[in-house]
Computed example of a mutant assay.
Amino acid sequence: MSRAMTRSIAELCAADHADDPEIIAGWTRNKTPQAVAQMLANPQLSLFVAEIEGMVGAVGAIAGPDTVALNYVSPDHRRRGLSRALLAHMEAEMAARGTDLARLTSTRTALEFYRAHGWQDAGPPELGHNVPGYPMTKRLAR
Rank of each mutant, 00 (worst) to 15 (best):
G81D: 01
T28Y: 02
A25F: 06
F113L: 15
E51C: 00
D66G: 11
A85H: 12
E93H: 08
H17N: 09
H89F: 02
S74R: 09
A4L: 01
M55S: 09
A58L: 02
Q120E: 15
N130E: 03
E53H: 11
I9F: 00
P75A: 03
T67W: 02
V49L: 13
D121E: 13
L12Q: 12
R142E: 01
P43H: 10
R79S: 13
A88F: 01
P65A: 11
G57N: 11
G118E: 04
Q38H: 13
S46R: 07
L101R: 06
T28E: 00
L47T: 09
R84D: 14
E51N: 07
I24F: 00
V56Y: 00
C13L: 05
R97D: 02
M136L: 09
G26I: 04
A116L: 13
M5D: 06
G81V: 00
M94N: 03
S74D: 15
Q44G: 12
G64N: 15
A116Q: 14
N42V: 00
L111H: 07
Q120L: 03
H129R: 09
G54P: 07
R103V: 01
A4E: 03
R7M: 06
G133E: 01
A15N: 12
S74M: 03
A92Q: 13
R139D: 07
S46P: 04
M136W: 02
L87W: 00
A88Y: 06
D121M: 14
R139Q: 11
T67Y: 03
P132N: 09
L70H: 15
D20V: 08
R97Q: 07
P125Y: 07
P21I: 05
A141E: 13
G123N: 02
C13M: 08
A37N: 06
R29H: 10
H129L: 12
L47Q: 09
R78P: 12
E53I: 05
E53L: 08
E93R: 10
R142I: 03
A63H: 07
C13E: 02
T107F: 10
L12G: 08
R78D: 00
L86N: 12
F48A: 09
Q44Y: 13
D66Y: 01
Y72N: 05
L87E: 00
T6I: 12
G81S: 08
H89K: 09
M5H: 04
L12K: 06
P43K: 10
A61Y: 00
W119A: 14
